[in-house]
Design a protein around this nucleic acid. Sequence first.
DNA 1: TGAATATATGAACAAGTATTCATATGTATA
DNA 2: TATACATATGAATACTTGTTCATATATTCA
Lengths: 120, 120
Amino acid sequence: MANNPLMDRCESTIIHEDIINEVKAHMPKEESLYDLAELFKVFGDTTRIKILYALFASEMCVCDMAALLNMTQSAISHQLRVLKQARLVKFRKDGKVVYYSLDDHHIQQIFNQGLNHINE
Amino acid sequence: MANNPLMDRCESTIIHEDIINEVKAHMPKEESLYDLAELFKVFGDTTRIKILYALFASEMCVCDMAALLNMTQSAISHQLRVLKQARLVKFRKDGKVVYYSLDDHHIQQIFNQGLNHINE
DNA sequence: TGAATATATGAACAAGTATTCATATGTATA
DNA sequence: TATACATATGAATACTTGTTCATATATTCA
C-alpha cells in the first residue's frame, strides 16, 4: 500500500470524530484565518515592530525613523509600504517630508497582550 | 562622497532631533521587541493559526488535527514543535496518543484584537 | 531652471521557513 | 516477541522575505 495517499495521515483512521466535528463547528472561516495570519506576519519582524512602537509615541518622518533605528532610508521605506498595505499606518505630506502615524488603535493592545505572554 | 555610509540616511541630517529623543525614551528595550516579533512570527502562519483555533475548542491529538486540517501528520507535528517552543501549547500522553492543548490564555484575546483590525 | 534633498521603488541576493519524504522512536496488543 | 500504529525528526526542496543597491519621483529653494 505504498501509494495510499492517506498512509501518512494516521492510516486514515480518525480517532475522535466527535471532537473533529465539534472543533470544525467553532472554526472561523478560512478567509478570516488567512487574513489573521497575514496580519501577524506583518507584526513578525523586528524592524516593523520598532517602527510601530516609535509611532506609539509620536508621528515621524521616514528620515527620522532611519536615524532612530540606524537603518537605511530605503529599508525603512520598504517596511512602511508593508505597514501601509496592512492599513496599520497612515501618512501626511508636508513638502518633501512625509509624516507617518498609526492608523489603528488595536495595535497597542495586541502588543501588550503579546508582552504579557513573553513576561510570564 | 560616494563612500559616505550615511549618504542613504537623509544625508545624515536628522530633521527632528527632539522627536527622536522623545521616541527613544519610550521604546521598550531591544530584547522585548525582538521577543515580541518572534511571538508574532509564530502567529504568522495559517497552519499554526488553525491549530491554535482548534485548540480553543478542545484538546486534540496530532492525528485528529491532521484529519481536521487535511494535512500530513508530519507537517502538523513540525508545527506543534514550533508552538511548543513558543510555550503556546502543552501536551499530555495517553499511551501512543499525544493530546495537545493551549498553554496560554492571552492567545484568544490577541486573536480577537487581530480580527477587530481585519473587520474594520 | 537647476541643484539639493526626502521619499519611493524595482531588481537582485541572502537568509529564513513550511512542507514533504523517509525513517526513527515509543507504546500497545496479538 | 513481533506487529501495528501514533508521533517525532532530520534532510532536502520550494517558496517567501528583508535588505541593499541603483535609480526614479517629487518638492523646495537659490
